[in-house]
Design a binder for these strands. Sequence first.
DNA 1: ACCTAAGCGAGACGGTACGTCTCGTCTTGCG
DNA 2: CGCAAGACGAGACGTACCGTCTCGCTTAGGT
Lengths: 195, 195, 195, 195
Amino acid sequence: MTKVLARRSIGSVRNPAAEEAILDAATAILAEGGYGAFSIEAVARRAKAGKPTIYRWWPSKAHLLLDVYHRLKDSMPEIDTGTLEGDLVGFLENLTSFWGTTSSGSVFRSLVAEAQTDPMAAEALAAYSDARVAGTAGLIRRALARGELRPDVDAEAASDLLSAYAWKLALIGRLDDPDNRIPAVAAIMARGLLK
Amino acid sequence: MTKVLARRSIGSVRNPAAEEAILDAATAILAEGGYGAFSIEAVARRAKAGKPTIYRWWPSKAHLLLDVYHRLKDSMPEIDTGTLEGDLVGFLENLTSFWGTTSSGSVFRSLVAEAQTDPMAAEALAAYSDARVAGTAGLIRRALARGELRPDVDAEAASDLLSAYAWKLALIGRLDDPDNRIPAVAAIMARGLLK
Amino acid sequence: MTKVLARRSIGSVRNPAAEEAILDAATAILAEGGYGAFSIEAVARRAKAGKPTIYRWWPSKAHLLLDVYHRLKDSMPEIDTGTLEGDLVGFLENLTSFWGTTSSGSVFRSLVAEAQTDPMAAEALAAYSDARVAGTAGLIRRALARGELRPDVDAEAASDLLSAYAWKLALIGRLDDPDNRIPAVAAIMARGLLK
Amino acid sequence: MTKVLARRSIGSVRNPAAEEAILDAATAILAEGGYGAFSIEAVARRAKAGKPTIYRWWPSKAHLLLDVYHRLKDSMPEIDTGTLEGDLVGFLENLTSFWGTTSSGSVFRSLVAEAQTDPMAAEALAAYSDARVAGTAGLIRRALARGELRPDVDAEAASDLLSAYAWKLALIGRLDDPDNRIPAVAAIMARGLLK
DNA sequence: ACCTAAGCGAGACGGTACGTCTCGTCTTGCG
DNA sequence: CGCAAGACGAGACGTACCGTCTCGCTTAGGT
């Protein structure tokens, strides 16, 4: 490790090293202690950053949580198994395993918790949900384009319902539960959508 | 002036008046300020109760939240429209309107938030979910008994998925959203379950 | 040393042990580092007290400084040499030596500094000055009663002027200066007061 | 729009416009908010100067305070009434009125406060006191030269004592107090010095 | 006529202290 | 023994300044 000097200002401009250190610290804290351990003080301490530096760039915990989450979620793979039910199962298993095995699960749960306190976080969460629903609707539309589905299918509703199940698993701490009902849920939805 | 005397101990036994005052105060605080305003201090202040009295009977915020929630949810009506899709729509509309128009929505959201911090609350929330899933599964089983459904339908999975959608609406603050996708979601699920 | 347990609340009443620990800590900090080192945080840290405990009983730094000062100044001896000039010299030497050799000098200087910032401290300082001026005026009046002084002497003015010189020595850090002008000042004042 | 261009560097040499703007800002802040409002940040903000520009030329608050004070005190008139007691009263009234009616009083009080924190400021204050004592001693020496005074009078001690009273009035916020004891103090000192 | 050196504004940086809030624990004194 | 009351140590909140830094720019003076 080549760390020698403490981080410093690099002039009248945002220091990317500080930003990275802060996001890393926040990620680590959420991974290790969850939302309960996540405080601006703790992040500052761990990142060896001043609190004002954090507040300068992330006016609220919600902003920081969102940034942390977006940095993580880029690593989630797309799914395309060729069949609708395979895609549905794959999506749920992908997402739950992503949440369960990376720190992203902690981050997501924290974001939901924060949204129950901070209206701005609530808005951000809703916007995030919308974006994800629109994204995942592609999975449905692909099947629609293949002619597998009833033509009156509401792709957004299906996508919304699908993600809702993943959310619930995350929020009650059952991401790793082998008895989860992912196959049965996917089966119900697949039958509800197919011709 | 007929100032009512302060509540006192009624001997070495739990005082129901204190319990009621505390639950009332907690309910009111959650209704008015949501989870952010909910603190043991605030409840004690409003109920004119000592903090130790609260901690004596509710060892954690989660316990208090659960008690508050259970006192409220008794007022939710059962649903039985005679058809599966009607029941599904009715369930979702009942639940979202119950959460949206009473303080129970705030309480539920607080419970979910608390569960992201406090493992005991998480367990309690999971147990509550299980109980509700089992209860709502009755709705599916009634249709199954009427012979409307495929015989291999997983009633718990269906019930779980159904409630997941209501949870998501609550958590992103869209209980009152007229553009929610309840009809489409119910349609997908109904088609997935019917013969 | 028999310290075993941390200090605790002793019920719904002020804990004298906490008060003493806080005043001790404040005194020690002022003695060691002067006004620059004196912060509520530092006092809390050293006294192993919570900040709210300090703010509960001393709403501002000025209050705490005053309490610390009053606890110290009880140890200052009275002066009575029998002659006016002896009393004047004795008073100045007593006071400057008291300020110079105990921590009270630091405390007094801090109080003056604080008074330049906090109007309440300024008022307290003025009130303290008035009390001391009235007290020290006794020294003049004794000589007056002995018939040594001109009958039109203003005892308060003399007392005020006398203390002003001690203040100045304290504020420019010359309490211990062997070249101070105490004898000459006392001589001028004595001649100005005697018949 | 004819927005005046911001101040710039005028090459590798100190910019007098910046210096003036900074001293003006500091003076104004001290006049308006006293020592409590006086911070390098506030001065920089008000002068539209960069903080390093201030730190470059005034390594500490004390330096800046001294510069501000010296720029102001030039406007204080000399006193010469022809009689000693008149000079003593005139000196005290001049000084207290100068401090009370211009911003110099705030500056002086700030300097004293700063001296209780910063040893360099303390030294500067002592040096300033010495210079003023020496200056004011001239007033005594004039009377001495006129043959009015006892030949053994210590002019510096008298001057020191005189200014001490003005300091005390300033520090307890009684510059404008009509009940101050200036006449009585001057009388005591005059009698103590005269033949 | 170029080039270097220094001053300038701006503002980010790691820190520390501010005064307030809530946490969960404790003890008292009354009933 | 329950109860209201409230003090206690702990520590997070979000803000203000501290003194240092680096930037991009200006201009003056030496070459």
